[in-house]
Design a protein around this nucleic acid. Structure first.
Lengths: 227, 227
DNA sequence: ACCTGAACACCGTTCAAGT
DNA sequence: ACCTGAACACCGTTCAAGT
């Protein structure tokens, strides 16, 4: 290359130069450490040792930042599900993957409800839907079946995200659930007999196992429509 | 009354005096008209012809305002379900009631994920759970069954709430869904074959009927666990 | 091309001062 | 007891000015 003669070293970027990727990685770090409220453009700029305006050279706005960060995390989850897995197991794996991702990155839970044409949503719908098809769900029932399963997964994700917002970042889910159980147990038995009755189970239950039980319940319902 | 003698008219409050109830009613009006973004303390104060500080005399903060407004709307929905209805029909009626409430007040959808000890959540869990019990779901399966059903209902509510945020307030859901269908149809067939295939159905489908189909699917799954 | 950081137009909330 | 509205401590975003 002719230009090499001019100077011995290439005009290289600072190794810590800003980039879309670095900004998103930093955003994820801040979100994981401090929760949704901790991600401000100023905090992000400080973390990257730059001015707040610099962020806007690489990403359109804060919304895009959150959406892209979510896409990154969900893409990782979905791609990690073994391609060779049997359809039913693959669906369970995707569902659990999303569940665990929200446990690790609670702020993702709220983001999953944003624009349904973004990769995060598409990946989940595609991976669940294609497996339902492989499972032999008839064409006519596919859309409703996939919709039910995905909305259930999103519902749990949203609830866990919201719950995480109510405690200090990093707090175990079971601590929060025990607190809710206490409040449920103290309710008026005349007004909320069922909720009160569930309080004990809420305290002791494994909510991850319960989540999977819900997936199985919906899969069972889908199967009855086939028979 | 002795004090009546002092003055002919009682020292009565201005008929438009502030009250918790009036503030919440005004908040609901603003939220319905302009969406979540329109509710600011300043806008609320202006609407009530008062200072912003006056709001804080009656409610603790904006969060309480949104939570109470949500409780009001959900309580209305649940109480409107006929007490004499057969359990299965009652569950469907509650689910549809929540669905329609979010259609009328999209901002409610996001609020349903907040504190699970608030009336809004309790009313839904209680009304669904007690009906599942009446339906003969065994004790051991009750908690998982109610959890699955409620999380599905909340998932759809959250999605519809988020969708509504993406269009001008008052826009019909079908207009938005047609837009999503267009974006889904344009996806890479190699990457998203299933989603693409669903695009046509997304454009033409009745999402309210689909929501109910999901409820039925889960009820069918719950029934299989009983047999 | 990329970065800086002051400035702008907002927020929710507080609180001294009024009635 | 209830209300006022300026003030405070924040936001996200823009943009002239720098390199």
């Amino acid at each position: 290359m002719a230009s090499m003669a001019k100077k011995t070293h290439r005009i290289e970027r600072r190794s810590d130069a800003l980039s879309r990727e670095r900004i998103i990685a930093a955003a994820i770090e801040i979100l994981d450490r401090g929760g949704e409220g901790a991600l401000t453009v100023r905090a992000l700029a400080a973390h990257l040792a730059t001015g707040s305006g610099a962020i806007y050279w690489h990403v359109a706005d804060k919304n895009e930042l959150l959406a892209t960060a979510t896409d990154d995390i969900i893409a990782r989850v979905v791609s990690e599900v073994a391609g060779g897995a049997r359809p039913r197991e693959a669906i369970r794996a995707v569902a659990l993957g999303v569940f665990d991702a929200i446990d690790a990155h609670p702020w993702v839970g709220a983001q999953l409800f944003r624009e349904p044409w973004r990769p995060a949503t598409l990946e989940i719908v595609e991976s669940v839907g294609s497996r339902l098809k492989a499972l032999g769900v008839p064409e006519a029932a596919l859309f409703d079946s996939a919709s039910a399963l995905v909305h259930y997964i999103l519902g749990v994700a949203g609830q866990n995200a919201a719950n995480a917002r109510l405690v200090a970042p990093g707090t175990d889910r079971s601590v929060f659930l025990a607190g809710v159980a206490g409040k449920w147990a103290a309710l008026d038995p005349a007004k909320y007999p069922f909720v009160r009755q569930m309080a004990t189970q809420l305290r002791d239950h494994d909510d991850r196992a319960q989540f999977l039980a819900g997936v199985d319940l919906i899969l069972a319902g889908i199967a009855t429509a086939q028979a």
